[in-house]
Lab assay of single mutants.
Amino acid sequence: MIINNLKLIREKKKISQSELAALLESSRQTINGIEKNKYNPSLQLALKIAYYLNTPLEDIFQWQ
């Protein structure tokens, strides 16, 4: 199971779900699903999230 700190990191950087979704060329619903652990992002999307949040991938997503 993958757990994530996306919501915590996103809020700390003062970025809304909609703003992050626009940067990622994704939907706000996708970001919401990832944050609620209802959806696991593809590797490509996970890497883009890490890039746009300027945060190491392993700080956002962790195996448990």
Rank of each mutant, 00 (worst) to 15 (best):
M1A: 06
I2R: 09
I2V: 13
I2F: 10
I3D: 04
I3V: 14
N4S: 01
K7Q: 12
K7V: 06
L8E: 15
L8R: 14
L8A: 14
I9H: 06
I9E: 04
I9W: 08
R10E: 03
E11K: 11
E11W: 05
E11C: 11
E11L: 13
E11I: 12
K12T: 12
K13C: 14
K14V: 05
K14A: 10
I15P: 00
I15R: 03
I15D: 00
S16P: 05
S16W: 07
Q17V: 13
S18D: 14
S18W: 12
E19R: 14
E19S: 11
L20K: 00
L20Q: 00
A21P: 00
A21N: 02
A22T: 12
L23H: 10
L24E: 00
L24H: 00
E25Q: 15
S26A: 13
S26T: 15
S27R: 08
T30F: 14
T30C: 15
T30V: 15
G33L: 15
G33H: 13
I34A: 02
E35N: 01
K36V: 10
K36N: 15
K36A: 13
K36S: 14
K36R: 12
N37F: 06
N37E: 06
N37I: 03
N37M: 07
K38C: 13
K38I: 14
K38Y: 13
N40F: 14
N40K: 14
N40A: 15
N40S: 15
N40H: 12
P41F: 04
S42T: 12
S42Y: 05
L43Q: 08
L43A: 06
L43K: 10
Q44E: 15
L45S: 01
L45R: 01
A46K: 04
A46R: 05
L47W: 07
L47K: 13
L47E: 11
L47Y: 09
K48G: 06
K48I: 05
I49Q: 00
I49Y: 00
I49K: 00
A50L: 04
A50Y: 04
Y51C: 11
L53V: 03
L53R: 00
L53H: 00
N54F: 06
T55D: 02
T55E: 11
P56T: 07
P56E: 07
P56W: 06
L57V: 10
L57I: 12
L57P: 02
E58L: 09
E58Q: 12
D59E: 14
D59I: 07
D59W: 07
D59M: 11
I60D: 01
I60W: 03
F61G: 00
F61Q: 00
F61I: 01
Q62W: 06
W63G: 03
W63Q: 03
W63D: 02
Q64M: 08
